[in-house]
Simulated assay, not measured.
Amino acid sequence: MPPLPDLSIVDAPLPYVPHLETRPLEQVDLVVIHCTELPDLAAAREYGERKLYPSGTGNSGHYYIDRDGSVRRYVPDDHIAHHVRGHNARAIGIELVNAGRYPHWLDSRRQAMDEAYPDVQIDALVALLHRLAAELPSLRHIAGHQDLDRGTVAASDDPSLQVRRKLDPGPRFPWPRVLAEVPLHRLTG
């Protein structure tokens, strides 16, 4: 096996990690790519710390990759994070800092996701995916959040219109590059 790319991961566990369910790592066969749809990493951390469920936990990915390529782990791999409906128990969630549709997530007139992903951020993602594939022998699949959550909701500007709940990582995410560089197969539903 070739050596793993250099990658520094800063552990920064969310306060509620002890309340998240654990799982055997053999159960993890999927990575889900998200974008934060928030202005910066600090806002994403603040959102991730919000307690939204009776268990005292909230919504968060496992890993966050900032625009400069720095990587933080908010949830250990053997814990189930809340990041994608119906797939959390089998998946690692990776959040890429990107504004997405911020702050008009559900406005039907503002569904474009125009921010590009910097090369250094994608380089860090590819390095992380290689590391996860080496450490998690069952890991075989990759998907975007929009591939797995196709639900719609009423638009915030016009409730008679429906918009997609999730569009991340969005049209600017370089799927061809990532898929060519990692040993994972894309799931689209």
Rank of each mutant, 00 (worst) to 15 (best):
G144F: 07
A89H: 15
D157C: 10
T152W: 12
V31F: 03
R85Q: 15
L38K: 15
S60C: 14
L52W: 07
E37K: 09
L184T: 03
A124Y: 07
V31E: 03
G48M: 07
S8W: 11
D78Y: 13
D77S: 14
T36Q: 09
L25Y: 02
Y102I: 06
P137K: 13
D147R: 14
R165G: 11
G170P: 01
P18N: 00
R73K: 06
D114P: 14
N98Q: 11
V10T: 15
H83K: 00
L7M: 10
H141C: 02
V71L: 02
Q121I: 12
G93K: 00
I122R: 12
R109Q: 14
H130N: 08
V163W: 12
R23S: 08
S8C: 12
H130G: 09
T57P: 04
H82S: 08
L184K: 07
E26Y: 13
G189T: 05
Q27I: 07
I92S: 03
V84K: 06
L187E: 05
T57S: 12
D168N: 09
P169V: 00
E21F: 01
A143H: 04
R131M: 05
K166S: 11
A89G: 10
R177E: 10
P171T: 01
Y117Q: 11
S156D: 15
G61F: 06
R90P: 04
V120H: 15
V120S: 13
L52R: 14
E49G: 09
I80W: 01
S156W: 08
R186I: 02
A155T: 12
D78F: 11
H19A: 07
R150L: 11
L148T: 01
V71I: 03
L38E: 13
T57E: 08
Q121P: 11
V71Y: 00
A12H: 04
P137L: 10
D158M: 09
D114F: 10
H62E: 02
H87R: 15
R50N: 10
E49F: 06
P103N: 13
G189C: 03
H141E: 02
P183Q: 14
A12M: 04
D40P: 01
P174I: 02
A91W: 01
L179Q: 01
G61W: 09
D149T: 12
L96D: 04
P171Q: 02
V75N: 02
L129Y: 01
H79L: 00
T36E: 11
A134P: 10
I33P: 00
Y47F: 15
G151C: 08
Y117E: 09
R101W: 14
P159A: 15
Q162F: 07
L132N: 12
S70W: 04
Y102G: 11
V71Q: 02
P76A: 05
S60H: 07
H141N: 01
S156T: 15
Q121G: 13
P18R: 04
V178Y: 04
G86V: 07
P5T: 09
I9Y: 04
Q27L: 08
D119I: 06
R140D: 07
L187Q: 05
I33G: 04
A44Q: 15
T188S: 07
S55G: 05
P103W: 15
L30V: 01
G86S: 06
A91R: 03
P174M: 01
E21T: 03
G151H: 12
R85W: 13
P118C: 05
G56Q: 10
F173A: 02
P171D: 04
I80T: 08
R45H: 15
L139V: 00
I142K: 01
P2Y: 13
V28F: 06
R67N: 02
R186Q: 06
P39F: 13
A127C: 07
